[in-house]
Design a protein around this nucleic acid. Structure first.
Length: 284
DNA sequence: AATGGACACAACCGCCGATGG
DNA sequence: GCCATCGGCGGTTGTGTCCAT
């Protein structure tokens, strides 16, 4: 094909947002002939789009089983966990979330997760940030998952699933609505610090696996809580073994300390805080 | 009411590996 | 083995919407 011919065809190609008419053409063609061979498909369907553009539009938006709307806490949890294992392998992560696309997951990571990293002034690819996710975000998501499943259970008389959760212990965890965490990469926990959740975390340098640690904090009920939550997210085809928490080096951990702060941003015991971890922004 | 910034999401771009002629 | 084409993937950009000023 000559260059001028190519240019002519390029000029003829449409770009930008898809119209309803284009969508209908694409859907109708795929319903009749199936997907694949996207360049040929684009021409045959009478679409002035590249094959790539058609493929993307179909996979990310038009495909019947594509889910729309906010990611559930379960899905977020799976994303966070798999990202810590797989990195930016969005398509691989997406395979564990039926109906979700790599594009959607990538956008979620960039807008929500990296936003938190910016707040904390931590590189989102750093161990420190991953650790923060594992220590604060994921337990909160687990709690959300648990709440969701509990309400499902309570609403369903047919279900025989029982949740052996000691709600009182679970709610000793900082409240999402009220709590802001402060990252203190250099500060050490004060001896005078009340023995709240934050200080118990500060006291701990080992964080190989969150499960035993959470159990230590909350007692055996946490074990049940965590396990039942894992059960809930296991419908996403995640190997439970993959959900083992990342093993962090203790050196790195010694530099990471979190303390509980009041809602107005002042921290109990220490006032110098220039970054914060806002739990309210972690999910819609 | 107008405007500018932040945000979320759809779409595009460029690269790379697989495949077939 | 070489080249062209295609499909898949991750990174980036464009655009619409919302909200604060």
């Amino acid at each position: 094909m000559t260059n001028s011919c190519k240019q002519e065809m390029d000029q003829d190609l449409r770009r930008g947002a898809w119209t309803l008419e284009e969508d209908n053409l694409l859907i109708h063609y795929i319903n009749c002939h199936g997907e694949g061979r996207w360049n040929l498909l684009a021409k045959s369907a009478g679409l002035k789009r590249t094959g790539k553009s058609c493929r993307l539009r179909w996979l990310n938006y038009l495909k019947p089983d594509t889910k729309r709307g906010n990611l559930t806490p379960q899905e977020q949890l799976v994303i966070l966990q798999l990202h810590s294992k797989l990195g930016n392998r969005w398509s691989k992560i997406a395979r564990h979330l039926p109906g979700r696309t790599d594009n959607e997951i990538k956008n979620y990571w960039r807008t929500r997760v990296q936003k938190q990293a910016r707040h904390l002034k931590i590189d989102s690819s750093s161990k420190k940030f991953v650790e923060a996710l594992h220590r604060f975000w994921m337990p909160r998501l687990l709690e959300k998952v648990e709440q969701t499943s509990s309400s499902l259970v309570s609403n369903s008389t047919a279900s025989t699933l029982t949740m052996e959760i000691d709600q009182n212990k679970v709610t000793t965890y900082p409240k999402t609505e009220q709590t802001v965490f402060t990252s203190l990469s250099s500060a050490q926990p004060s001896d005078n610090e009340p023995n709240n959740y934050g200080s118990s975390i500060c006291a701990s340098n080992s964080c190989g696996n969150m499960l035993p640690e959470m159990s230590q904090m909350y007692g055996d009920s946490t074990h049940t809580f965590y396990n039942s939550s894992l059960h809930n997210i296991n419908c996403y085809n995640v190997d439970i073994n993959e959900l083992d928490m990342i093993d962090f080096g203790s050196d790195d951990m010694s530099a990471l300390n979190f303390q509980l702060v009041d809602n107005d941003g002042t921290r109990s015991g220490d006032v110098a805080a220039d970054t914060y971890w806002n739990m309210d922004e972690l999910w819609p």
